Simulated assay, not measured.
Amino acid sequence: MSELPGYLALAWGKQERPTRGPKPGLSLERIVAAGVAVADAEGLAGLSMSRIAAEVGAKPMSLYRYVGSKDDLVILMIDHAGGPRR
């Protein structure tokens, strides 16, 4: 069985966020929620890391500490739309 990508392991509570380094100013949940809100209002064509960063009050490159790419973010948004895990 293959290992989960890091962003999914974090989102699903299977991996803890590293405690080393500066305390994160954002959360994966907040970034995903902002992505869903932008896509809901503007469609997927309006979804960009810059646009999401503006929504959460961060610099675009800081989002890459939480998600590896826009594609990873879209996967998390789809996962989020599926509702909570039991």
Rank of each mutant, 00 (worst) to 15 (best):
G13R: 09
G13F: 14
K14R: 13
K14L: 12
K14F: 07
Q15T: 07
E16Q: 15
E16G: 12
E16H: 13
E16I: 12
E16C: 13
R17P: 02
R17G: 03
P18E: 12
P18A: 14
P18R: 15
T19E: 11
P22E: 15
P22D: 12
K23R: 14
P24C: 05
L26M: 14
S27D: 08
L28F: 01
L28R: 01
L28N: 00
L28Q: 00
R30T: 04
R30F: 02
I31P: 00
I31Q: 04
V32Q: 01
V32A: 02
A34L: 01
A34P: 01
A34V: 00
V36D: 07
A37H: 01
A37C: 07
A39P: 02
A39S: 05
D40S: 10
D40P: 01
D40R: 07
E42C: 11
E42A: 15
L44M: 13
G46P: 03
L47W: 06
L47C: 04
L47N: 03
S48V: 01
M49C: 03
S50P: 07
S50L: 14
S50V: 12
I52A: 03
I52W: 02
A53N: 07
A53L: 10
A54V: 05
A54E: 10
E55I: 00
V56Y: 02
V56M: 00
V56N: 03
A58M: 00
A58E: 08
K59S: 09
K59P: 01
P60L: 08
P60S: 09
M61H: 09
S62M: 09
S62Y: 06
S62R: 09
S62W: 05
L63M: 08
L63G: 05
L63W: 05
Y64E: 10
Y64R: 05
R65E: 14
R65P: 02
Y66T: 03
V67H: 15
G68H: 12
G68F: 10
G68M: 11
S69E: 11
S69T: 05
D71V: 07
D71I: 06
D72Y: 10
D72E: 15
D72K: 09
L73A: 04
L73P: 03
I75S: 14
I75H: 13
L76R: 02
I78Y: 15
I78Q: 12
I78A: 13
D79N: 13
H80A: 15
H80I: 15
H80C: 12
